[in-house]
Structure formats: structure tokens, C-alpha cells
């Protein structure tokens, strides 16, 4: 077990290193921030001073070594625009994104698994067919469009929910959160639903497919032959088996929800990391972009590790010590 964790950590560091090289080179290729950041009226001397101040006069490899030296001590550079540590800027925005992502994932899981189970148990019923038809919509409607429609219906036409922002936040262990107040919930409801929609559709389909497959297995028939109630057969025997792929997907999708909440955050003006990233890309704020991507990669790595650990709990056939790669 400890060997496993050590090996995974080394792998993670390798992934982070490779990622940092790619990101650094990629961002360098995108464009020169100096053109955007510096007053076009500035003269050549001011210009060169500014470039030197940002460290952009040095060759790429030297900029990269400087970055790595800082990164090892937890300093991912300073934002060109905000003149503040990039990591600090991101961490400041992270609770908002995490809250949105968690709420979305919760909606997707709490609705998706029961609906998928239902559709899997009664695939030919009206309800089963309706659930599947709905999930196709969830897959195919573009997120931004659904977001705009939600705003139009619930904010503009009905006036029930606020269309943007986080609303008032309450401090929970020093972290500002929305979900502890009713007003916060009203702000959270629409963006979370919007973000959940795609994942909901995915979970419905996954759960349904798993259920249909599990129902054909002999162990289900044997469980019924033991005289177990239907509820026990489904909630214990079927669900425990289909939970294995579902947990994997939930884990991976949670990472992607955090990373790619950008669209939803933009539509609902949610003050999260995604919006920060968009703004930073527009201004070519290199340190923030790089730091954001490093943070996201770290989140993905941590979630994957957690999923693997959870996997071994759910499926006794999986032994972590034997897992390779």
C-alpha cells in the first residue's frame, strides 16, 4: 500500500513536470503579452524596462528554469496584470468553482443513478423511454445555450432566480461559501443545474447500461433464487456491481467539471477559476494561465488517486499492490 502511494506520487511528479514543459512552451507560442500589457504610447526605453521587469527579456529556457525554481518552493510566478502571486489568485477563486462543481456533481449523482436504475429496470416502459430521450437532450444541447435559456426563463420571464454572481457568501472554516444561505442557494441553483446537465445524462446512460447488463448475470438470478426481496437484489447485488464503473466516471468527470466549468461560469458570471482563466487568456497573463493548468493537473491527479483507492474498496478483486502503471 505505501509502496503503491509512493510510486503514484513519483508518477504524479513526472506528469506535472511534463505538463509544465508543454504548458510553458504552449503559452510562449500563443503571443507576446508585452503588446497587450504595455501602453502603446511608451517609448523604447520604457518598453525595455517593462520587459526586463517581467523577465521576458531572457530566453525561454531561462524563464522556464526560473519558473521551476519558484515552483519547487510553491511560487508559481506573479500575475502580469494583477501584480499578485498567480497561485494566490487561483486559490482565492477556487472555493467558488469547487462549490459549483460539487453542487453540479451532486445533482448529477443524486438524479442520474436513480433515473438510470429505473430506466435499466424498466427499459420498455414509458418512464424508461422518457428518461433515455431526456438524456439524449442532456448530451446534445450545448451548455451555453441551455444556460442562456435558463436565464431567460427563470430570471427574465419568471423572475424567480438571480441571473449572475454568487450572492452573499458565508464563511465556513474561513472559506466563503454560498450554500449555507437561502440567497446563496438561489444563486447556485441555475449554474449548478446547467453544469450538471451533461454529467446527468452521462450517469443515466452509464447506470442504465450497467443495470441492464447486471440483470442478466447469474448472480442476480441466484440472489433471487435465494428468496431475497427485489429491493435487496437491486440495491445490494446489482448496485454494488455497477457502482465500480460509475465511481470511476464520477471521479474523472468531477475533475473535468472543475476544469471546464468555464462556459457555465462565463454565462452566469460566476466568480470562479474558469472566469479567471478566460480573463487571463484574453490578457495573455502567462503566469496565471500556467499556474491554473498546473493546479488543474494536480486536481486530476489527486482525484484519480482517490478513485483508484475507492476502487479497491468497492471491488475486492482489485489489489493496489499489483496494479501496474
Amino acid at each position: 500500500m505505501s509502496v503503491y502511494v509512493v510510486r503514484r506520487t513519483l508518477q504524479a511528479l513526472l506528469v506535472l513536470f511534463v505538463m509544465s514543459v508543454l504548458v510553458f512552451a504552449g503559452v510562449y507560442a500563443v503571443g507576446n503579452p508585452v503588446d497587450i500589457l504595455i501602453n502603446p504610447m511608451a517609448d523604447q526605453i520604457e518598453r525595455e524596462q517593462a520587459i526586463a521587469a517581467l523577465g521576458l527579456d531572457k530566453p525561454l529556457w531561462e524563464q522556464y528554469t526560473t519558473f521551476i525554481e519558484g515552483a519547487v518552493t510553491g511560487d508559481l510566478g506573479r500575475s502580469f496584470v494583477h501584480a499578485a502571486p498567480a497561485l494566490g489568485l487561483i486559490l482565492e477563486r477556487m472555493p467558488a468553482t469547487l462549490e459549483l462543481a460539487s453542487a453540479a456533481m451532486l445533482i448529477a449523482v443524486l438524479l442520474g443513478i436513480p433515473l438510470g436504475l429505473w430506466a435499466g429496470l424498466k427499459p420498455h416502459s414509458f418512464a424508461g423511454r422518457s428518461i433515455m430521450a431526456g438524456s439524449i437532450l442532456g448530451f446534445s444541447l450545448p451548455t451555453f445555450w441551455v444556460g442562456l435559456m435558463l436565464i431567460m426563463v427563470f430570471s427574465v420571464m419568471l423572475g424567480w432566480l438571480p441571473s449572475n454572481g454568487r450572492g452573499p457568501t458565508v464563511e465556513l472554516l474561513g472559506v466563503p461559501v454560498s450554500f449555507l444561505s437561502l440567497e446563496g442557494w438561489r444563486h447556485l441553483a441555475m449554474p449548478a443545474t446547467n453544469l450538471a446537465l451533461f454529467k446527468l445524462a452521462l450517469l443515466i446512460r452509464l447506470t442504465r447500461a450497467g443495470t441492464r447488463e447486471a440483470l442478466l448475470q447469474d448472480y442476480v438470478k441466484f440472489a433471487r433464487a435465494k428468496g431475497l426481496s427485489n429491493a435487496r437484489v437491486i440495491l445490494v447485488h446489482v448496485l454494488r456491481n455497477i457502482l465500480i464503473p460509475i465511481v470511476t466516471v464520477i471521479g474523472l468527470e468531477f475533475g473535468s467539471v472543475i476544469a471546464f466549468a468555464i462556459v457555465t461560469e462565463s454565462v452566469f458570471a460566476w466568480p470562479g477559476m474558469g472566469k479567471l482563466l478566460i480573463d487571463s487568456i484574453n490578457l495573455l497573463d502567462r503566469p496565471v494561465i500556467v499556474a491554473y493548468l498546473m493546479v488543474i493537473v494536480t486536481i486530476f491527479i489527486v482525484i484519480n488517486l482517490l478513485v483508484d483507492l475507492l476502487y479497491s474498496v468497492l471491488d475486492p478483486r482489485v489489489r493496489l499492490a499489483e496494479a501496474k502503471g
Binding site: 447469474d218 448472480y219 454494488r240
Partner: peptide, 19 residues
């Protein structure tokens, strides 16, 4: 079922719940 009448299936690899 399982009380007065019990059944045993063909493939023992499949009849027990793996998890």
C-alpha cells in the same frame, strides 16, 4: 424461493456475487 425450493446454477464462476 430459497426456503422450500432452492436452485443451483450451471456456472459457479457466475452465480456468486463477485463484490
Amino acid at each position: 424461493r430459497g426456503n422450500r425450493v432452492a436452485m443451483i446454477f450451471q456456472d459457479p464462476m457466475m452465480t456468486l456475487n463477485p463484490v
